[in-house]
Design a protein around this nucleic acid. Structure first.
Length: 302
DNA sequence: GAGGCGTGGTG
DNA sequence: TCACCAAGCCT
């Protein structure tokens, strides 16, 4: 399978900036931004960041509020704060250089098994077992014959990925990148382009007659949740340059057409003269959002 | 180990 | 239209 995927990858791989001549720091930033966020939205922000903060020390010195603003609308802003903390550790414990091995990468905040393996492989050419959602899906179809991988990563999947990894270090790096790209462009979650697949002939899922998924992926609720409130709060704060009053949050939520959010923030507005109740309500509604506000130097009314 | 965490494009 | 989905991590 290696040669077919490699040939396809050489011809079809996307020309992404972090795949060109790029520092380990640039690779790390890209991997964090790409956690659950599509490439098309990451690319312009990544360009901005690398120009503004070309090395970990530059980024570590920036105020948290600026980090969150620069993060823009990539989503999951806690990733930005964790990367900020990681840059601090890189400066303090690694002399300002991104560590070049899996174990030390894994110890950084916001860096899990996937990101540690990916940075070790793509920034430092290490032979590591990279397993992301694309690779899991390709393995599930190509090797196992199932439409989708299990809901959560299993030990068996890790063992399979380790078994498939080429022994040669340089080939292992190309294999990781190629399988991931195949999952992103051809072997997609919905409507895979099997007609363009370089390993169609060897695919266990095709051989089995493309059976349907054996479970139903469960969606994440959004309307009326704390996350929706946090999203509205963060949208206001990104645009603000000074401490934000709760009234402003409510007005903004209403103006943005978020009736559920405005209703919840309206409760806070009514409670504004009763500080203890306000604190309790805020703690229940926007606990993480408040932590981010505090980290970013913002204040809520007393 | 299941659930929480932002955001916007798309079939 | 509205679920689903996008290079996960942490608790």
């Amino acid at each position: 399978m290696y040669s077919e995927i490699q040939e396809w990858f050489s011809a079809e791989a996307r020309d992404l900036p972090w795949r060109r001549d790029c520092s380990a720091w640039g690779i790390l930033v890209s991997e964090i931004m790409l956690q659950q966020t599509p490439v098309v939205r990451v690319q312009p922000v990544w360009e901005e960041w690398l120009e503004r903060w070309p090395a970990p020390a530059d980024f570590a010195a920036a105020p948290a509020a600026e980090v969150l603003r620069a993060w823009g609308r990539l989503g999951y802003p806690r990733r930005a704060l964790r990367l900020h903390a990681a840059a601090g550790e890189i400066v303090e414990r690694h002399g300002g250089a991104v560590p070049d091995n899996y174990e030390e990468l894994l110890s950084l905040p916001g860096v899990g098994t996937y990101t540690a393996a990916a940075v070790a492989a793509f920034a430092f050419g290490r032979r590591t077992t990279v397993v992301d959602t694309n690779i899991r899906r390709v393995h599930a179809r190509l090797v196992i014959g199932q439409a989708l991988p299990a809901p959560a990563l299993t030990a068996a999947e890790m063992a399979l990925a380790a078994d498939l990894l080429p022994e040669d270090t340089a080939e292992s790096v190309q294999w990781n990148a190629g399988v991931m790209e195949l999952g992103a462009l051809i072997c997609t979650a919905r409507s895979p382009k099997c007609g363009e697949c370089p390993v169609l002939e060897q695919c266990a899922w095709i051989a089995a007659g493309q059976p349907e998924p054996t479970y139903i992926p469960k969606g994440q609720p959004w309307a009326g949740t704390d996350r929706q409130v946090r999203g509205a709060v963060m949208a206001v704060l990104r645009a603000a340059s000074s401490p934000v009053h709760a009234d402003l949050l409510w007005n903004a939520a209403e103006a943005q057409g978020h009736p559920e959010v405005a209703k919840e923030l309206g409760k806070l507005h009514e409670l504004n003269t009763h500080a203890p109740q306000l604190e309790r309500a805020l703690a229940g509604l926007v606990a993480d959002g408040l932590a981010q506000l505090s980290d970013a130097g913002y204040q809520l009314p007393a």
